[in-house]
Amino acid sequence: MSAILLFMAVIALIVGWWLAQQRLTAKPWLEEGAIGDFPGTGAMALPAAKIGLGVFLAVAGSLFALFISAYYMRMNMVDWRALPVPRLLWLNTGVLVLSSVALQWAHVGARRNDMDRVIVGLCAGGASAVTFLVGQVLAWQQLSVAGYFVTSNPANTFFYLMTAAHGLHLMGGLVALGRTTAKVWHGAEMTQVRLSVELCAIYWHFLLLVWLVLLGLLTGWTDDFVDICRRLLN
């Protein structure tokens, strides 16, 4: 359970940092009056959708951290046989990085009021994300052709399960991205899509980060890293 506890500690730090600015030690019964006297303690000025995305990322992060915790606990059992990571995953990783870069590009374009750039960025990002998903399915196919079925070993099951969970999150993102692109296509103003583009970019970066962590886990790098940490501590 160390992965999820680490994740919770990070969340606790963020929440604690935010609460620390909210004057939780104030004596509210002495502070009658308008809010103007206590700047920064009112409602957040950020758009609701952006805060909502932030909270959602915490939930999704918790989900993946729990998968990782379960992975580590299950992995120490005797019957665990790590499976070879298909080369294709490296290509897929590259494609996902491209996808993230394209959306960042669109996001910068949106800030600079450059609609052409936004369109190119959104389309490139969407296309490469779809390519990534196709690549993941191909990787599954390669594995099952090579005899690594879902049920033959828990390592295989975790591989399919975690890549599927990540893929489903990406597909959810594609729905949002598709709606934004459609809006742009139908000639929406920049002000109407700027926020959506930004949120898509943030979500894409998050999923890229999750993917890199999962990749590290599945290739066994994370193990080596954890081992080194352990040795340093001992």
Binding site: L19, Q22, R23, L24, A26, P28, E31, A34, I35, F38, T41, G42, A43, M44, L46, A48, I51, G52, V55, F56, V59
Partner: peptide, 20 residues
């Protein structure tokens, strides 16, 4: 849940600090 949290964070009336 996303709604409840974001509503408290973002849609409080003017003057409604956390400690109020």
């Amino acid at each position: 849940g996303l709604n409840y949290v974001v509503t408290v964070l973002q849609a409080r009336a003017r003057g409604m600090t956390l400690m109020r």
